[in-house]
Deep mutational scan, measured.
Amino acid sequence: STGEEYIAVGDFTAQQVGDLTFKKGEILLVIEKKPDGWWIAKDAKGNEGLVPRTYLEPYS
């Protein structure tokens, strides 16, 4: 699937089932941008889950 690459600007630990845990500096592939501010993203290992958009910045 296609998506946009974003870099994590902080650590995030999953708070509920379906969230994706990530560390600062990780590159995430954003698959869907939901209007509530929680985006669906995939990490380098292929894990998929919800992430808070405030922790992400476009990666170029």
Rank of each mutant, 00 (worst) to 15 (best):
S60A: 14
T2S: 06
Q15N: 15
K34F: 06
F12D: 01
L28Q: 01
A44H: 10
R53E: 15
K42P: 00
G25E: 11
K23W: 04
W39F: 13
T13I: 07
Y55D: 12
I27E: 07
K33I: 11
E32L: 06
G37T: 10
G3V: 12
I31N: 11
Y6Q: 02
G46Q: 10
E5S: 13
A44N: 08
V17D: 03
V9L: 04
Y6A: 04
G18T: 13
I40V: 11
T54V: 13
D36T: 13
K45S: 13
K34C: 05
K45Q: 09
P52T: 11
K45G: 13
K34M: 11
P52L: 14
T13H: 08
K24S: 04
A44G: 11
Y6P: 00
G37S: 10
E4N: 10
T13K: 04
V51Y: 00
V9M: 12
G49N: 01
E48Q: 14
K33E: 09
G37N: 07
Y55S: 14
D11Q: 07
V30A: 09
L50G: 14
D19A: 15
G25K: 10
Y59K: 11
L28R: 00
V51I: 09
D11V: 02
L56I: 12
S1E: 12
K23H: 10
F22P: 01
V51M: 02
D43P: 02
E48G: 13
Y59R: 13
G18F: 03
E26Q: 12
T2P: 03
K23F: 05
V51Q: 00
D43R: 05
K45W: 11
I31G: 10
L50F: 05
V9G: 10
G10T: 09
L56C: 06
G25I: 00
K24I: 02
I7V: 04
G3N: 11
Y55C: 15
Y6E: 01
A8I: 02
R53I: 11
L56H: 00
G37I: 14
P58S: 09
G10K: 14
G46Y: 06
I40W: 07
I27R: 11
T21C: 07
T13W: 02
A44R: 07
L56A: 02
K42M: 04
K45V: 06
P58R: 09
S1D: 15
W38Y: 15
A14P: 13
G46L: 07
K33H: 09
S60H: 05
K45D: 07
P52S: 15
T54N: 11
K23E: 13
Q15H: 14
T13V: 03
I7H: 05
L56S: 00
S60T: 07
L29I: 07
P52M: 15
T13A: 03
A44L: 09
D36P: 03
K23I: 04
G37F: 12
G37K: 15
D11A: 13
D43G: 08
K42N: 09
I31S: 10
P35Q: 10
D36C: 06
I40N: 14
A44P: 13
D11E: 08
R53P: 15
G46F: 04
E26L: 02
E32S: 12
Y59S: 14
L28F: 14
G49M: 02
S60L: 05
S1A: 07
N47V: 08
V17I: 10
L50M: 10
F12G: 04
A44W: 08
E32D: 04
G18D: 11
N47L: 10
A8T: 08
D19W: 14
K45Y: 06
P58K: 06
V9K: 05
L56T: 03
K24A: 04
G3W: 13
V30G: 02
K34L: 07
R53G: 12
G37C: 11
Q15I: 07
R53A: 12
T21F: 09
V9Y: 02
Y55F: 10
G49Y: 01
F12T: 06
I40F: 06
A41M: 13
G37Y: 08
V51D: 00
K34D: 06
L28E: 00
I27C: 13
K24V: 04
T13L: 04
R53Y: 04
G46T: 06
T2L: 07
D36F: 06
T54I: 05
A14S: 13
V30Q: 01
K34Y: 03
